[in-house]
Protein backbone atom coordinates (compact mmCIF):
# COMPACT_ATOMS: atom_id res chain seq x y z
CA UNK A 1 0.00 0.00 0.00
CA UNK A 2 1.30 3.44 -0.97
CA UNK A 3 0.20 6.66 0.70
CA UNK A 4 0.70 10.22 -0.58
CA UNK A 5 -0.55 13.39 1.02
CA UNK A 6 -1.09 16.74 -0.69
CA UNK A 7 -2.62 20.01 0.48
CA UNK A 8 -5.46 20.92 -1.88
CA UNK A 9 -6.74 24.02 -0.05
CA UNK A 10 -6.20 25.92 3.19
CA UNK A 11 -8.18 23.44 5.24
CA UNK A 12 -8.35 20.28 3.09
CA UNK A 13 -5.56 17.73 2.83
CA UNK A 14 -5.84 14.95 0.28
CA UNK A 15 -4.58 11.51 1.23
CA UNK A 16 -4.19 9.26 -1.82
CA UNK A 17 -3.96 5.52 -1.27
CA UNK A 18 -2.81 2.98 -3.84
CA UNK A 19 -2.93 -0.82 -3.73
CA UNK A 20 -4.37 -3.21 -1.15
CA UNK A 21 -5.71 -1.54 2.00
CA UNK A 22 -5.30 -4.42 4.44
CA UNK A 23 -3.12 -5.48 7.37
CA UNK A 24 0.01 -5.46 5.19
CA UNK A 25 1.61 -2.05 5.58
CA UNK A 26 -1.36 -0.84 7.63
CA UNK A 27 0.87 0.53 10.40
CA UNK A 28 2.50 3.12 8.13
CA UNK A 29 -0.86 4.21 6.67
CA UNK A 30 -2.38 4.37 10.17
CA UNK A 31 0.47 6.54 11.46
CA UNK A 32 0.43 8.90 8.48
CA UNK A 33 -3.35 9.35 8.56
CA UNK A 34 -3.36 10.05 12.31
CA UNK A 35 -0.66 12.67 11.73
CA UNK A 36 -2.81 14.42 9.08
CA UNK A 37 -5.94 14.21 11.28
CA UNK A 38 -4.13 15.72 14.27
CA UNK A 39 -3.02 18.69 12.19
CA UNK A 40 -6.65 19.90 12.40
CA UNK A 41 -7.64 19.88 8.73
CA UNK A 42 -10.45 18.25 6.76
CA UNK A 43 -9.28 15.08 5.03
CA UNK A 44 -10.26 13.82 1.58
CA UNK A 45 -9.16 10.19 1.16
CA UNK A 46 -8.74 9.27 -2.50
CA UNK A 47 -9.61 5.57 -2.82
CA UNK A 48 -9.71 5.48 -6.64
CA UNK A 49 -6.50 3.41 -6.87
CA UNK A 50 -7.37 1.06 -4.02
CA UNK A 51 -7.98 -2.44 -5.39
CA UNK A 52 -8.72 -4.33 -2.15
CA UNK A 53 -9.94 -3.26 1.29
CA UNK A 54 -10.43 -5.29 4.46
CA UNK A 55 -11.85 -4.61 7.91
CA UNK A 56 -8.37 -3.45 8.92
CA UNK A 57 -8.46 -0.72 6.26
CA UNK A 58 -11.94 0.35 7.35
CA UNK A 59 -10.80 0.48 10.98
CA UNK A 60 -8.05 2.94 10.00
CA UNK A 61 -10.53 5.14 8.06
CA UNK A 62 -12.92 5.22 11.03
CA UNK A 63 -10.14 5.93 13.53
CA UNK A 64 -8.92 8.85 11.38
CA UNK A 65 -12.49 10.16 11.01
CA UNK A 66 -12.93 10.05 14.79
CA UNK A 67 -9.74 12.07 15.35
CA UNK A 68 -10.82 14.64 12.73
CA UNK A 69 -14.31 14.77 14.25
CA UNK A 70 -12.86 15.56 17.67
CA UNK A 71 -11.60 18.88 16.25
CA UNK A 72 -14.83 19.48 14.27
CA UNK A 73 -13.24 18.44 10.97
CA UNK A 74 -14.46 15.90 8.47
CA UNK A 75 -13.09 12.94 6.59
CA UNK A 76 -14.64 12.21 3.19
CA UNK A 77 -13.97 9.44 0.68
CA UNK A 78 -13.33 9.96 -3.02
CA UNK A 79 -13.77 7.64 -6.00
CA UNK A 80 -14.02 4.11 -4.58
CA UNK A 81 -14.41 1.45 -7.29
CA UNK A 82 -17.65 -0.61 -7.17
CA UNK A 83 -16.28 -3.57 -5.13
CA UNK A 84 -14.71 -1.21 -2.59
CA UNK A 85 -17.96 0.76 -2.46
CA UNK A 86 -19.85 -2.45 -1.74
CA UNK A 87 -17.57 -3.19 1.22
CA UNK A 88 -18.15 0.34 2.54
CA UNK A 89 -21.92 -0.16 2.17
CA UNK A 90 -21.99 -3.54 3.94
CA UNK A 91 -20.03 -2.00 6.80
CA UNK A 92 -22.40 0.98 6.96
CA UNK A 93 -19.49 3.37 6.35
CA UNK A 94 -21.54 5.18 3.69
CA UNK A 95 -24.06 6.16 6.39
CA UNK A 96 -21.37 7.88 8.42
CA UNK A 97 -18.92 9.33 5.89
CA UNK A 98 -19.66 11.25 2.67
CA UNK A 99 -18.51 9.50 -0.49
CA UNK A 100 -17.89 11.47 -3.70
CA UNK A 101 -17.30 10.15 -7.21
CA UNK A 102 -14.39 12.54 -7.81
CA UNK A 103 -12.56 15.58 -6.50
CA UNK A 104 -14.65 17.70 -8.87
CA UNK A 105 -17.86 16.27 -7.40
CA UNK A 106 -16.59 17.10 -3.92
CA UNK A 107 -15.64 20.66 -4.99
CA UNK A 108 -19.01 21.07 -6.75
CA UNK A 109 -20.77 20.31 -3.51
CA UNK A 110 -19.32 23.54 -2.12
CA UNK A 111 -18.36 21.93 1.18
CA UNK A 112 -17.04 18.64 2.47
Amino acid sequence: MEIKTSVISADITMVSLTGSFDATGADIVDLEMRKVARSGVNIAVDLSDVVFITSQGIRILMMTAKIANASNKKLVLIGPKPPIRKVLAIMGVDKILSIYESVDAMAGNGRL
Binding site: S55, M63, A65, M91, L97
Partner: peptide, 22 residues
Protein backbone atom coordinates in the same frame (compact mmCIF):
# COMPACT_ATOMS: atom_id res chain seq x y z
CA UNK B 1 -25.45 -2.62 15.40
CA UNK B 2 -25.02 -0.25 12.45
CA UNK B 3 -23.71 3.09 13.71
CA UNK B 4 -25.28 6.31 12.48
CA UNK B 5 -22.59 8.75 13.62
CA UNK B 6 -18.80 8.80 13.77
CA UNK B 7 -18.77 8.87 17.54
CA UNK B 8 -21.00 5.76 17.73
CA UNK B 9 -18.91 3.84 15.19
CA UNK B 10 -17.04 0.86 16.56
CA UNK B 11 -13.42 0.31 15.60
CA UNK B 12 -13.46 -3.46 15.94
CA UNK B 13 -15.71 -6.39 15.09
CA UNK B 14 -15.97 -5.63 11.38
CA UNK B 15 -14.40 -8.80 10.00
CA UNK B 16 -17.25 -11.23 10.64
CA UNK B 17 -19.99 -8.93 9.26
CA UNK B 18 -17.94 -8.69 6.05
CA UNK B 19 -17.64 -12.47 5.93
CA UNK B 20 -21.41 -12.79 6.39
CA UNK B 21 -22.10 -10.06 3.84
CA UNK B 22 -20.03 -11.53 1.03
Amino acid sequence: KVAQTISEASLSGRGIPLLRGF
